[in-house]
Amino acid sequence: MTLLITVFAAVIATVLWYTRKNDNLGLGFLCFMFWGASIMWLVDAVFEYVELKEAYFTPALEDMINDTFLGLSVVALALVVWVVRLLITDPRGVVRRSLKNSAAR
C-alpha cells in the first residue's frame, strides 16, 4: 500500500511538473524524491514477494491500514520537505520581497 500511494504521488507530481511551462516551484525535486522512494519500495516488494509468495497479495486488514497510514504520512513528509526547500531557495523571490516590505514598514 505504501508503494502504491508513493507511485500515485510520483505520477501526479510528474504530471504537474510536465504541465507547467517553467518549473519555478521546484516540482522536479518532488518528482525525483517520489520516484526514488517508489523504486526502492518496489525492490523491497519484490524481495517480500519472493519470501511470502501469494500471501503477499492478501495482507491482513490491520497491516493494510497501517501501510496506508504510513504511505499518507510519507507523502505528507515529502510535501513538507518540498515546501521548506521552496521557501529557502525562493525561486520567485516572494519570501525576499515580503521580508523586504516588512522591514520597510
Binding site: T2, T6, G28, F29, F32, M33, F34, W35, G36, A37, S38, I39, M40, W41, L70, S73, V74, L77, A78, V81
Partner: peptide
C-alpha cells in the same frame, strides 16, 4: 535527488 529523496522517505519508514 533520487537517492537522497528516496533514502530520506525510506528512513522515515524505518523510524515508523
Amino acid at each position: 535527488s533520487m537517492l537522497i529523496g528516496g533514502s530520506f522517505l525510506l528512513a522515515f519508514e524505518h523510524v515508523w
